[in-house]
């Protein structure tokens, strides 16, 4: 296990370096000059020249990359051109918001997805199964921004139960925090719940047809115990892995959902920064999310190995 871990950790470094080069180069492909965007409406040539010089946009690409990566290695992600704030501070400010939203969304999607999947597998080919499948299809095919606006109209404008947008930290006011994040978390969780439901259903059907389930039934165990204790446990392994990967995606920020609900997380920061060609922020956020994704993948792998000793070695 130690050797496995060490090998995987060693692999992270070249991966991240490669990621940093790709992020840097991809960004250069974006049309539009950051200095022109930053110069605002008046576009004073002197200001444009100054911005180019200040942010080294006038230097060759390898030199720009060199400065950036040197900073990254010393913990300095650079400064936002637009906001004049350190990127590390912005990342630290947005990360807890995105984390909270992602965790809530995962809990919601696991809750809905797994139970719906199990129910639909147990009641295979009945009206309940069809109804659950219909719900799944709806979840997958509903665009997030549309569902978001619909929820806002219903729960905020008409019923007045929830705030239409914004974010409050749970450490400031727990209930208000829950109120501000429940709709966006549901929207995010909803689409993934449908995916989870489909996976759980097929995994459960497979498990329910397995020999050990037949044995369990033959032993005279109640159906409840057969389904929940024997079949579901085995069916859930791939589903949980799927959940871990989805968490990684959610942590990179939910662009559309954060935009609709004005949640100040990674997604919103990223969109604003891309539109303003705020290179340092785009690079910093992407690098941080890439790192998290890699680490979560590693965690999933470790969990796999722990669950399945045959993978060690």
């Amino acid at each position: 296990m130690t050797a496995f871990l060490a090998r995987r950790l060693a692999e992270i470094i070249p991966t991240l370096l490669l990621v940093s080069v790709i992020i840097f180069l991809l960004q250069q492909l974006l049309p539009g000059d950051p200095a022109t965007v930053m110069a605002g409406e008046d576009r004073d040539p002197e200001v444009i020249a100054h911005i180019r010089q200040q942010y080294r946009l006038d230097r060759p690409l390898p030199v720009q990359y060199g400065y950036w990566i040197k900073g990254v290695l010393t913990g300095d992600l650079g400064e936002s051109m637009r906001l004049k704030e350190p990127v590390a501070k912005l990342v630290a400010q947005k990360f807890p918001v995105t984390l909270q939203l992602a965790l809530m969304a995962i809990v919601i999607s696991l809750g809905i997805g797994i139970s719906a999947g199990v129910v639909s597998a147990v009641y295979k080919n009945t009206a309940i199964d069809y109804a659950v499948n219909l719900f799944g299809l709806w979840g997958i095919s509903t665009p997030n921004f549309w569902l978001g606006i619909l929820l806002i109209t219903l729960f905020s404008v008409h019923l007045g139960w929830l705030p239409a947008s914004g974010y409050v930290s749970p450490f400031e006011d727990f209930w208000l925090s829950l109120k501000t994040t429940i709709m966006p978390a549901f929207v995010l969780g909803n689409s993934f719940a449908a995916v989870l439901m489909r996976h759980t259903r097929s995994a459960m059907l497979q498990a329910m047809a397995a020999d050990y389930v037949r044995t369990a039934r033959a032993k005279g165990l109640s159906e409840r115990v057969v389904v929940l204790k024997h079949a579901m446990r085995n069916a859930l392994t791939p589903v949980v892995t799927l959940g871990a990967l989805e968490l990684g995606t959610l942590l990179s920020g939910a662009v559309l959902t954060e935009q609709v609900f004005s949640i100040p997380g990674f997604g919103k920061l990223m969109v604003d920064s891309v539109f303003n060609r705020d290179y340092a922020v785009v690079q910093g956020v992407t690098l941080v999310t890439a790192t998290m994704y890699i680490l979560l993948n590693l965690l999933a792998d470790v969990a796999y190995v722990l669950l399945n000793p045959r993978l060690r070695g």
């Binding site: 606006i149 947008s165 914004g166 609709v260 004005s262």
Partner: peptide, 14 residues
């Protein structure tokens, strides 16, 4: 950013 959401906030008292 969304004009529709801005208006929804105004209508809902946010």
């Amino acid at each position: 950013t969304e004009a529709t959401v801005r208006l929804a906030n105004l209508k809902s008292g946010g």
